[in-house]
Amino acid sequence: MTFSPDLEARFARLLESYPPGRRRSALIPMLMYAQDEVGAVTGEVVEEVARRCGVTPLQVDEVVSYYSMLHRQPQGKYHVQVCTNISCLLRGGDKLYEQASRKLGIGHKETTADGRFSLEEVECIGACSWAPAIQVNYDFHHDMTPEKLDKLLASLEKIQ
């Protein structure tokens, strides 16, 4: 399978980053970047990345199923990740998660019917001092409040 020229260039750089004979090292970054472009680690991505990294598809699958950010099924256009770990919990992260779930009408690791949103209750995302925090795709939203969350979801709803 082919990827965008940018991604191909990134893969090429990746493969040069590791010592000779160590192209397997590119496996996890490749999967992450491929997932960003394709939307999920599809069977086709597994086969392709396995081939490029010189491993078996099973070895790729072992890795994909291990890491929580890699997923075989496509997620929503906006993947809303609400941290409920200790620092966020103490400042209402759990309530924010409930709120998001109610608003979007979906639960943990579910996607809305229109594919716009998916929701995940995530572990610590490294924003403890600016809790509660949310990540939408790779973007951080710090010091969240119920009002800010409503606004955020509404703005994402509007983006064409």
Binding site: T56, L58, D61, S65, Y66
Partner: peptide, 8 residues
């Protein structure tokens, strides 16, 4: 190499 471990 027919067996592996998935999930964690």
């Amino acid at each position: 190499n027919a067996l592996g471990v998935v999930n964690r």
